[in-house]
Amino acid sequence: MSSIKGIAILGAGLFAKEAHLPALAALGDAAPPLKAVYSRSQQSSQSLADAAIASLKLATPPSVYYDGDASSNLDALLARSDIAAPAIVLQALAAGKHVLSEKPVAPDVAQGLDLIKTYKELYQPKGLIWRVAENYEAESGYRKVGEIIRSGKIGDVIFFKSVVVNYIDKESKWYKTPWRTIPDYQGGFLLDGGVHTVAVLRVMLPHAFTHLSGFASLNKDYLKPHDTIHTVVKAGDHFHGISEMTFACPTKSRPNADAFVITGNDGWVSVNNVNIPGSDKPIIRIVVKSVVKVEGQPEQEAEETIDVPSQGVLAEQQSFFDALEGKDDGLNLGDPFAALADVAFIQAALNSNGKLVDLTKLLEGKTE
């Protein structure tokens, strides 16, 4: 049973209904009670409240907050003493609340650096916890790949490749999310979805990226400002790799390609999301091929396949709630600066136009 008084969900989008509510339901009594929901409009806030009642089987419905009335707006919600962790940043922190905010951590690196600086100077010393809800970094399957690589099973990493191919049309529920259709928002789908891919690479690879060169393009006008990026990335003197991301696939069917392949000098590992027939719960499938060396015999290959259930949102919520109760799981999930490194990758890819970008300097605020 959680000792936290209660939480609020701020924002009534698809992910709140389709991911956060089911994760809270799965946690059961381990999750704090949902006391309130907020959205800009009364209709969308009420819709989330209704979904919460059904998903969480609530005997007492969450309070509904929305703009337009001083008694029911965001300030009124934040004034409640029984709300521990609404998902908003500075306004919530200023109200003395812990925060689990959705990714990306900020629209760009400069704003992210300012946000993190303010948190560290004003709110972290007060014991307030702020984490970024990057559910891909919380996936135990991706973290398992990191453990495999660090164990030396494929030797030292020498190169990698990541491929993300998505089809988005105007009827997609994700396209109809208003902010993604605003062309002046850096990257659109590439920022929103791309940080997930970078977070996966960050969790699996043994060294951080230091340099990037790439190109961005727009292939479907309604996905402005960009829908595709291709990059070559370097991690110091350790290894390099290629990352491609597109939301402009011309067909719903996609070409066959592994999502991630990491190659070492003694083997390789591939990683894919797999949907099992008859199940609505995807898995992360890991295939490891390694060289077996026995003195006096020809080299042979060993293969291992590992299937891990996908439960990233549940894992990130559980870790956050544990942190609020003073428990440290040692995973360092939701670190805002790590999440900002994901944004820096996408920002560099969007702006590089073939020029080499020093990611370390970018994250220090020394270059664009």
Rank of each mutant, 00 (worst) to 15 (best):
S213V: 07
G214V: 05
G214Y: 00
F215S: 09
F215G: 07
S217G: 14
S217H: 09
L218T: 05
L218P: 05
N219Q: 15
K220C: 01
K220T: 03
D221P: 02
D221N: 00
Y222L: 01
Y222E: 00
L223Q: 03
P225H: 12
P225Q: 13
P225N: 14
D227A: 00
D227S: 00
D227V: 01
T228D: 09
I229A: 05
T231D: 03
V233M: 06
K234D: 09
K234S: 14
K234I: 10
K234P: 00
G236T: 10
G236F: 07
G236K: 12
H238G: 05
H238V: 12
F239A: 03
G241V: 03
I242Q: 12
S243E: 09
E244W: 04
T246H: 08
C249K: 08
C249S: 15
P250H: 10
P250V: 11
K252L: 07
S253P: 00
R254W: 10
P255V: 12
N256F: 11
D258E: 15
A259F: 06
V261E: 11
V261T: 15
T263N: 10
N265S: 11
N265L: 09
D266M: 09
G267W: 09
W268Q: 15
V269N: 07
V271C: 12
V271F: 02
V274L: 14
N275K: 14
I276V: 15
I276P: 03
I276M: 14
I276Y: 03
P277S: 15
S279V: 11
S279Y: 10
S279H: 12
D280I: 04
K281L: 09
I283E: 08
I284L: 08
I284G: 04
I284C: 05
I284S: 03
I286Q: 05
I286P: 00
V287P: 01
V287I: 11
K289G: 08
S290A: 13
S290W: 04
V291W: 06
V292Y: 02
K293A: 08
K293F: 03
V294W: 01
V294Q: 01
E295S: 04
E295D: 03
Q297W: 00
P298R: 06
E299L: 07
Q300C: 03
A302G: 02
